[in-house]
Design a protein around this nucleic acid. Structure first.
Lengths: 115, 115
DNA sequence: GCGTCGGAGTCTACATTGTATTCCACGAAC
DNA sequence: GTTCGTGGAATACAATGTAGACTCCGACGC
């Protein structure tokens, strides 16, 4: 199976964190605020497209509830079962490799972040 | 600062795990055994080169101790302070985003792996 | 000695992923 | 009706990841 790139993983994780409001721009804000990185719209939409093509992500138009501001209906992003699995696999590998490295890396952070 | 790609991170982490024997092929074996992925020599050396160019990694020729088998002296890989910092930053971000996702992702693995 | 095997490392070309830029549409505010 | 903010699309390009064939050299067997 195709691996997840670093950014792809972050995007998927951020979508999962949004729970109630999984929209592209929420993800963007989340990433900019919490991932110490700039995120251009192009980068994000491109990545979303690719994740969709790979079947790891889907979207549906927001049920007209909040056409809020702006013309476009918002897309609600949904991580598929396959996407979830990919995230899990990646996380497990990463954690396996980070395990036992606290002495050399310094301990993991303990702060509580919003969900 | 340049971000770490997925593979770059894994390589750096694996080098750190090798402690006593940080050689390219050890890293390769480690990755193939524990990261559920094929690693060709090309991919690995290419990545090592790039990490060196970015100043995240250095190497020195093995002090002739073990010219073992084969002609080439082995390169001992050393993660620089800057490299360590990059790994830490990446880890912190990742952990921040994974935090609180256990309910949706399933709990992290608990197995004890070699170091 | 000579061939060839296997380990260690290199090179080149290519595929995938990541990023910046620029553009369009629509509604609201003015 | 012009401008601004929000949501999205398309394009082109840069960085990262992968494959495969190639070199070099010591060990082994003959």
């Amino acid at each position: 199976m195709g691996r997840l790139g670093e950014f792809e993983l972050l995007v998927l994780l951020s979508i999962l964190r949004q729970r109630a409001a999984p929209y592209a721009n929420r993800v963007r804000d989340d990433l900019e605020a919490n991932a110490d990185r700039r995120v251009t719209r192009g980068a994000l939409y491109r990545t979303i497209d690719r994740l969709c093509e790979k079947g790891l992500l889907e979207w549906e138009l927001e049920p007209s509830e909040t056409p809020d501001r702006g013309g476009h209906p918002m897309r609600r992003l949904l991580v598929t079962a396959e996407g979830l699995e990919a995230v899990e696999r990646t996380r497990d590998v990463l954690q396996r490799f980070m395990r036992g490295l606290d002495p050399v890396l310094g301990p993991a952070l303990e702060e509580g972040l919003d969900a």
